[in-house]
Design a binder for these strands. Sequence first.
DNA 1: CTCTAAATGAGACGTAGTCTCTGGTCAAGG
DNA 2: CCTTGACCAGAGACTACGTCTCATTTAGAG
Lengths: 163, 163
Amino acid sequence: MSDIDLIIERLELRGHRITSSRRRVLDAVLAQQAHFTVDDLLHTTRKVGRATVFRTMKILLDLNIVCRVMMDDGALHYRLSTGRHHHHLVCTNCGRVEDFSNCDVNSLVRDLQSATQYEIEAHWLEVYGRCQSCQLLASVPESKSAATSKRATSARGGRRGNN
Amino acid sequence: MSDIDLIIERLELRGHRITSSRRRVLDAVLAQQAHFTVDDLLHTTRKVGRATVFRTMKILLDLNIVCRVMMDDGALHYRLSTGRHHHHLVCTNCGRVEDFSNCDVNSLVRDLQSATQYEIEAHWLEVYGRCQSCQLLASVPESKSAATSKRATSARGGRRGNN
DNA sequence: CTCTAAATGAGACGTAGTCTCTGGTCAAGG
DNA sequence: CCTTGACCAGAGACTACGTCTCATTTAGAG
């Protein structure tokens, strides 16, 4: 059973209808290799309304089929999700995104819980850095080839940093 | 020397001019007790243009005088900052925000760095839960008094959760 | 006091997302 | 077959948050 059929099955289980528009959005999502924006989807799925794409993405978000990544410029991108809880490691140079879940946020959360008496429900962690290949490129003087992948897409606005 | 004079001194050191508009924005920021939005500032500082408030906030952000908090509904709020690196613990019920910095994200970052070969530059962590008083309120049946503080302000749009 | 670069305010613009409204599709029931 | 009602689509208005532009003002150095 292919990815798309599995997803369609889950949509049906939730009582959602499988319409041609939703199928087109799903196709577009699955065709994306890195992260993407709703705008990217709109360019590939002609004839599907903006609102419909947003509505479909909301459903996929609820079902943990996609997740959202906060890029270092503050822009929110979508990304196919593993479904399990995880975090993102974002390359600030080329925009590549790595998942990680084998981290130790839980002990941190436990400490915080006992220190503050809060009943902790969720957390959001994004880590930013330079991937290995971007480090190598940077060390070659006058290399003009860096930063060509996703970076171009959407860069305006926003600022990261909560200090 | 008062808070505002200290900040003004830092602005001058950076070569920024101290205009009456900036002073009005500063006053408004310092008058805020919890977290706030640019819109909140606009209501208190009449006669200062929107763009100017945004520009001033950007400077204050650069100087670490304020920081940004991602609320659980996805809205970005501003907050007076301690200046040092820290994270936020947000009550999802009343919107109260607690700072914490005594956490151990660093070991996590170190592990991640050696596992992925990324050169890690920054991270963003927000934790969500229920503060003690909201837990108490919730345990009183039919209590109608909960959730009155900041919650009302801006709630439209956005979704949290990277999962 | 004069001069100029920096800053301002108004408003156009951009982007991400929601809401509203009208109309379509489809399954169940009569 | 027809009706009804729930769900869904698409268009486009609208909102929130922020940036850009441009003509005008002003801080502050000389």
